[in-house]
């Protein structure tokens, strides 16, 4: 700004920014998102610190939630309904599913309401809106990380006790599986959040939809215990092969197929691309409709 220019017209078109009614569909401003990365991490820190302020147990609550859910599943599905866990200790079986599932569900639920939850901030200050859903995914990753430690502790315990666990090289795929879960949660969440700014109908569906989706994923049952005629339906859910692969890597039981994982990967990235584009389009004017 300090440069001295004699004639106005000489620098006529050196604008740093042009605000217009509509920008290109693919104008994602990713460079700008990168410039705001500090904000992303401050949001993550905020979520983490604010959730457990004024609690006595603090982050221990991260452990308690999946632990209680696992115990409930063990009683209801394991002992009462007697659904087969494919020879794996019930604790390891359910917890592997729940830990991964929770990550997805949290990402989806929080991202899907991102416009409504943050309308007050979005209405006052501009920053690249993509920062918000990304921060949600990262802050849930922290939470997931802690829960994963709990799962690992339990898994190691059963491993030492000599139960039927056969970890294998597919463990190397675990980070990728987590990434896929994040991408699906983020993509679907952004899609839903964008669609609900104007028409709120999907919000109602989301409330119980995530619950139902869990039953359409191999969280409480093993893939190879499903009757053949329903299998295709479960397979069609891109989350299924991710959860199945995750469990297979840690326990060696279940099924693994590159084809199914490939299908999930494609579905995930398509969802992400679609979600990002729609989100980016809606983000500019959502304040008028939310």
């Amino acid at each position: 700004m300090e440069k001295i220019v004699g004639v106005d017209s000489m620098e006529a078109e050196q604008w740093s920014e042009i605000i217009q009614p509509t920008a290109g569909l693919f104008d994602l401003k990713l460079a700008e998102v990168w410039r705001y990365r500090d904000l992303l991490f401050l949001f993550v820190k905020r979520d983490f610190v604010a959730t457990y302020k004024q609690t006595i147990l603090g982050p221990i609550w991260f452990f308690i939630q999946p632990l209680l859910t696992t115990l409930t599943f063990m009683v209801v599905f394991g002992s009462i309904a007697k659904i087969s866990t494919d020879g794996i200790p019930m604790m390891v079986f359910y917890m592997s599913g729940i830990t991964l599932w929770n990550y997805f569900a949290e990402c989806l639920n929080k991202t899907a309401t991102v416009f409504r939850d943050n309308a007050s901030i979005f209405g006052k200050v501009y920053f690249p809106r993509l920062v918000m859903p990304l921060s949600i995914v990262v802050s849930n990753l922290v939470r997931f990380g802690i829960q994963l430690l709990l799962f690992l502790a339990i898994w190691v315990y059963y491993l030492i006790m000599g139960d039927q666990l056969h970890p294998n090289w597919y463990l190397l795929l675990v980070p990728y599986l987590i990434l896929l879960m994040a991408i699906i949660g983020l993509g679907a969440g952004m899609l839903i959040s964008s669609l609900t700014t104007k028409y709120r109908d999907l919000v109602f569906l989301l409330g119980f939809g995530v619950q139902l989706l869990m039953y359409a994923s191999p969280v409480i049952y093993a893939m190879n215990t499903i009757p053949q005629k329903y299998a295709w339906f479960i397979r069609a859910n891109p989350l299924s092969s991710i959860i199945e692969t995750f469990r297979y890597a840690f326990t060696g039981s279940g099924q693994f197929s590159w084809n199914y994982l490939g299908y999930s990967s494609i579905a995930a990235f398509v969802l992400l691309a679609l979600g990002t584009l729609v989100f980016n389009k809606v983000e500019k004017s959502f304040m008028d409709t939310v």
């Binding site: 042009i18 605000i19 217009q20 009614p21 509509t22 979005f122 209405g123 006052k124 200050v125 501009y126 500019k284 004017s285 304040m287 008028d288």
Partner: peptide, 9 residues
């Protein structure tokens, strides 16, 4: 930039 114009720049 919290909302967009309908026309103009």
């Amino acid at each position: 930039k919290t909302t967009t114009p309908t026309t103009g720049s």
